[in-house]
Computed example of a mutant assay.
Amino acid sequence: MTNHFHLQIRSKDQPVSKVMSFINKRYADYYNTKNRITGHVFEKRYYDKLIASKQGMLEVSRYIHLNPVDANMVMHPQSYPWSSYRYYMHTSRHHLLTMAIILDYFSGDAWEKRRKYQEFVGRERVE
């Protein structure tokens, strides 16, 4: 029997933005104490925005996967060691990822969906 775990942050009492704010603050406190420093750890505050369309979801996914490339940290998104992009390109699975949420926006079998997503990520973005 295979166990499937989906990591989701939810709170019945607080909106996600408040939960994330709490997590960011706790981590910043830990980081600053550990390194004996003070000040901001994160550049900007967390904010959330509802993604209301298929195109919006795909754009956010592409933005996330290309962010290390745009920051000149790597040449290709699959080269960034902390990215899930390489899992989208191969049949390997990761127990914390539900890639079908993105890949199912494309038609075809599993390989065709992956190829189309890779093509989508590589396409020029509208800024």
Score class of each variant (00 low, 15 high):
residue 87 Y to R: 02
residue 104 D to V: 02
residue 38 T to K: 15
residue 8 Q to F: 13
residue 104 D to G: 02
residue 84 S to K: 04
residue 127 E to Y: 10
residue 26 R to M: 09
residue 41 V to D: 01
residue 39 G to F: 05
residue 29 D to M: 08
residue 66 L to K: 04
residue 37 I to V: 15
residue 93 R to T: 12
residue 123 R to K: 15
residue 102 I to E: 00
residue 43 E to S: 08
residue 46 Y to G: 03
residue 7 L to E: 08
residue 118 Q to G: 03
residue 13 D to V: 06
residue 93 R to S: 09
residue 74 V to W: 07
residue 48 D to Q: 07
residue 105 Y to Q: 10
residue 105 Y to H: 15
residue 82 W to M: 01
residue 110 A to S: 14
residue 32 N to R: 14
residue 4 H to T: 08
residue 30 Y to I: 04
residue 97 L to V: 00
residue 52 A to L: 07
residue 70 D to V: 09
residue 95 H to D: 09
residue 25 K to A: 13
residue 83 S to A: 07
residue 72 N to Q: 13
residue 97 L to I: 14
residue 119 E to G: 07
residue 41 V to R: 14
residue 109 D to E: 12
residue 9 I to S: 09
residue 61 S to I: 01
residue 106 F to D: 00
residue 48 D to V: 11
residue 123 R to H: 15
residue 18 K to M: 07
residue 99 M to F: 06
residue 127 E to Q: 14
residue 36 R to A: 10
residue 80 Y to L: 06
residue 50 L to I: 10
residue 22 F to I: 06
residue 65 H to Y: 04
residue 12 K to A: 11
residue 33 T to F: 13
residue 100 A to K: 10
residue 99 M to V: 06
residue 55 Q to I: 10
residue 105 Y to T: 00
residue 29 D to Q: 11
residue 82 W to Q: 08
residue 117 Y to G: 01
residue 50 L to F: 04
residue 33 T to W: 08
residue 56 G to E: 12
residue 70 D to W: 09
residue 83 S to H: 07
residue 110 A to F: 06
residue 125 R to Y: 02
residue 29 D to L: 12
residue 122 G to K: 13
residue 120 F to T: 02
residue 66 L to E: 01
residue 76 H to C: 03
residue 109 D to K: 15
residue 102 I to C: 01
residue 68 P to T: 11
residue 66 L to S: 06
residue 96 L to V: 03
residue 26 R to E: 11
residue 56 G to P: 02
residue 74 V to R: 07
residue 19 V to M: 00
residue 110 A to L: 10
residue 100 A to F: 05
residue 13 D to Y: 13
residue 3 N to F: 13
residue 2 T to M: 08
residue 60 V to S: 08
residue 123 R to G: 12
residue 98 T to C: 08
residue 97 L to Y: 12
residue 113 K to G: 00
residue 68 P to I: 00
residue 35 N to E: 14
residue 25 K to P: 02
residue 53 S to R: 06
residue 64 I to E: 02
residue 91 T to R: 11
residue 17 S to M: 05
residue 57 M to K: 06
residue 76 H to V: 06
residue 27 Y to Q: 05
residue 45 R to P: 00
residue 93 R to I: 05
residue 101 I to K: 14
residue 75 M to I: 11
residue 57 M to T: 01
residue 39 G to S: 03
residue 122 G to V: 03
residue 120 F to N: 01
residue 115 R to N: 13
residue 80 Y to G: 03
residue 64 I to T: 12
residue 61 S to F: 05
residue 75 M to L: 13
residue 103 L to H: 00
residue 4 H to Y: 03
residue 125 R to V: 15
residue 57 M to E: 09
residue 37 I to Y: 02
residue 27 Y to S: 05
residue 82 W to N: 09
residue 49 K to D: 07
residue 93 R to F: 01
residue 36 R to Q: 15
residue 73 M to V: 11
residue 4 H to D: 06
residue 58 L to Q: 04
residue 27 Y to C: 08
residue 24 N to S: 08
residue 90 H to A: 10
residue 59 E to Q: 14
residue 86 R to V: 09
residue 111 W to T: 13
